[in-house]
Amino acid sequence: MNIIEKGLLEKITGLHEVPQGAYNIRANGGLGGRNTTANIDIVSKEDKPGIDIIIKPNTKNESVHIPVVVSKSGLNDLVYNDFYIGENADVVIVAGCGIHNNGDEKSSHDGIHSFHVGKNAKIKYVEKHYGDGDGLGERVMNPTTVIEIDEGGYMEMETTQIKGIDSTVRVTNASLANDAKLVIKESLMTHGKQYAKTDFTVDLNGENSSANVISRSVAKDESYQVFLSNINGNNKCAGHTECDAIIMDKARVSAIPEITANHIDASLIHEAAIGKIAGEQLLKLMTLGLTEEEAEEQIVNGFLK
């Protein structure tokens, strides 16, 4: 990998070197490195671009890193990744995509990730999106995540997009069996003329299944965000969705939560709040000696943390 690709990799994984444990690095549409372990196998798909990640039952305390970096202007990358998480496994999966576009053509990465979370398995999925480069070419990412959680399974998904992606439409669909649990935490910051749409649909099919979808976002400049969250309670279940957004400058945010109870014991809540930074928050931090800009930055960083 060259220096730009290494830089992108660091932005999305926080790692300077190749990751520990299992990993698969995709660089400019090709393979940039792979490692498997006794419990975690990674296999390239034969029929289409992408990989199968197979985690054996009872695998504990292991991690898989599958970063994607795009540094060629004009590259439009599409992958299908399938994750099979065996029963009782307990693992961390770190994905992420960085685009560096110095050219004037559009660069994009569209990933379709499917998670099959086995019985009583527990996974934490961390996903970071990042873009940079000075070209006029757009940086576009349209990730789709499909989640199926079997009985008693647990998945926590942390998705972050802090800067540099011009356009993104993120679709997440989940279905949960009995006693399954899903937690999604999204943090998002858009600036310039960026557009970001988030679309969550969760089907709570199993008895005692539960979902908590939390989004915190900051929209700056002339950016535009749309947050759609749709939870269907099809059994005795609990669902909660929350969108909390700060708008600045001339930005716009729409939050469209939708909850549907199809069962008498479904208990669903949605909350949405959009507003600018409270004036008194800025005043308080300024009385501590921060400038208005520094105060704003602290408030935004804390909010997205």
């Binding site: 915190r216 909390d244 409270a278 931090l285 501590l288 602290q298 408030i299 960083n301 804390g302 909010f303």
Partner: peptide
């Protein structure tokens, strides 16, 4: 006193 979503007691004491 003002409330802040996301900032912790430690953050504010440090900023102070």
């Amino acid at each position: 006193p003002v409330r802040f979503k996301g900032l912790t007691v430690r953050d504010l004491i440090t900023l102070s």
